[in-house]
Every structure is written in structure tokens, then in C-alpha cells.
Design a protein around this nucleic acid. Sequence first.
DNA 1: CGGCCGCGCGGTATTACATCA
DNA 2: CGTGATGTAATACCGCGCGGC
Length: 378
Amino acid sequence: MRSRGVMELGLSLGDAGTASKPCGFMEKSSKLSSKTNLGFCMGLSIGPNHTPQEDEDEDKEKHSNSDHKSDNTNTTAAATTEANKRKSMTVDTTDSPIQLDLLPNTPVPRNQNHSLAYLVADNGNISRGFDVNRFPAVVVREDQGDQDVAALSSSPPNSATSSFQMDFCMYSSKGRSESHNEADQAERASSRASDEDENGSARKKLRLSKEQSAFLEESFKEHNTLTPKQKLALAKELNLRPRQVEVWFQNRRARTKLKQTEVDCEYLKRCCETLTEENRRLHKELQELRALKTSNPFYMQLPATTLTMCPSCERVATTSTSTAAATATPTATTTTTTNNQNNTADPTSKTTGLSLSSTRPRFYPFSHTQTHPHQHTA
DNA sequence: CGGCCGCGCGGTATTACATCA
DNA sequence: CGTGATGTAATACCGCGCGGC
């Protein structure tokens, strides 16, 4: 992991990025599955079982072969080659467990028009839908002559999303908006499918299920960047492609940063307002003192230390030796005791690491006296 | 030292969904 | 209630820079 982009403003978003427990998300699978009717209870993986070492090897292999390369490809030729690679990879069943959704409740299938023939629920219902975000259609569908799959598979070889368009599988959509009924979703899915029939290059981008998002969120709380191993494990756990997991984390980091920037902007805005107000107050105070000087020359003959400023609350106060002056000029002292609300919660002093203290007097020859115009609770 | 590779980030396009008139 | 316009969030991609090898 790099440290380059880590919270340049020195802010922390709570859990994000604080934990360093490796593969913490691995511990969450059971938890998540139990609390959210996560659908994938069983996987019929055609490939061998994976040990961590195998995952690592697989990771290496994928990186040497992988879809990731295309993201950094600058030439069209290379992109085309990579797209072809990816397309061919979708036939590889190693990473393509057939998922059986065992949810008792029957959620709304998202893409009902995609074949449901392979879906088995524990109550015996044949139901569910395919999630185009999941496993490769070719594995189970192409030999069925499914026209949707045929349409999907007809993506241009140079389409950067060709493999993605073929990624789908059964899934539970229980968490999705309940405002959409089955017919709705089927209709929309059908619409999408027909769009693809017309234009095979249409990008297929469907939202992750709530379960998937929640799981990713939990993982993000554990660590906001992923090692290749973690990425692989997450992808397997959620039945997503590693690239999807990677992209999700990238976007999640971007969202975090954006939100933090907004918070910082608010902070700075308030600081600016506070300082403006303080500046105005000080100007006013200065004018009053000047007026006092001209109207009451004797006042200025008092010792210089009679007007001091409290370093903690930054109010001008009069000492016992200036009682007469204070009494004579109640306006001045009243004005200067205008409370600075930010003393107890200086917005710049917390997580931002920003400090406006340099804009304020740092040292005052101040000593609290009995005539201090206010009380400190500290 | 330069090239390659992997990765993160900023920017942006695209899509899905929500809200409102 | 249905529908189109609009806004927002989510997902995905591209290009670039950086650091390690």
C-alpha cells in the first residue's frame, strides 16, 4: 500500500483507514451471512478449492494475464488484445462458481429474463434471477443457446467491457428497493437486454446488491486499501471480479476524500467567519481605545499592564490597578468581553491539523486577577 | 539510469435510482 | 397514477504519476 494519498489533510474518518488487521473481512463472512440473508450459501466451483497459497498464485497469474492490464493500456491495439484476452477468460470456469441462492424469501429477480433454470431455493422454489455482475454467463448459458447470452457474447472484441457484460449469475435482491415489483424489474431487465440486442457494446453496469455493498463497506472500515490477496478473497467471497472489488475500493476512497473535503471546507468557512468577526471586534476595540485616549488623556497614564488579554479566552481585561479606568469606560470592557465561542471548541484544533493560532496573539503578559471580567471553568 | 509493472488517484462517462412537477 | 425531466449516487474506465524491482 502506498502512503501517498492517505488523508493529506490529516483527517480521520473514524474507522476508515485506522485498522490494520489483515483480511479482516474474512472474519465477517459468517456474520454478514447470518444477519443479512446473503444468498450465496453454496458454491459449485468447477475449479479446485483454493488455499491461500493458491490464491496468491492465482493472483500472480491473473496479474500476468489479467484484466487489470487493460486499465493501464495506452494503445488501442493493446486494449483490443486485452479485451480479447478477457473475452477468452470468461470461458475459464476456474473462478466461476455456480451459485445457489438458498434464501427462503423470494426477492425480486433483477434480470428475470435471464434464464432461471439453474436456480434452486431451499423451499424447492425455482426462482431468483441472474445478476449480470456475477459469474460468467458462458459457463452455464452459452450451451443453452440463450439469446441474451448470445447477445452479450457478441460484444465487440475491442470493447473494454466485453467480459463484464457476460458476467452474471443468480443472486438475491432482497435488499433492493421494494418499490420495484417483479414485473417492473423484469421489464427493465428485458429493456436492457433488448438494448444490448440492438447494440452489443452497451455498457452493462449494475449495482451491487446491498449485501455486497455492506460487506465491502465493512471491509473498507478494516482497511481502505487492498492487498492483492485481500482483493482476491473479497472477490471470491462476494462473487465479484477482483477488478470490481478494486474499482469499488477506489471509488470508495474517492467518496471518502470528497466528503472529508466538504467537511474541511465547512470547517474553514466557519473559521473564516470567526476570524472575520474577531477582526471586526478588534478593530472596534481599537477605535474605542483610541477614542478613549483622546477623550481621557489621564487614562493612558496608567501603567501599560492595566489592559491585558487573557491568553485562554483572548478577552481584554482590566487589572485591579485599572479599576477606575474600567469603571470610567464600561463600553470598552463590555465590548472586549464579547465571548469567543470557539475557545471551547476551536474548529481548527481538532482533526484537521490546521491551526489558526498563528493568526492570533501567542503570548500575553497576563495574570489573572480578582477583577478578571469572567470566570474560567478550567 | 531507464524500462517495466502494479497500484492509487483525479477526472469523467455511463448507468441506476430517486424525486418532483 | 403514470410519465418525463432532473438530480444524485454508484459503477466503471482512462490517463497519469509514483514507487519498487
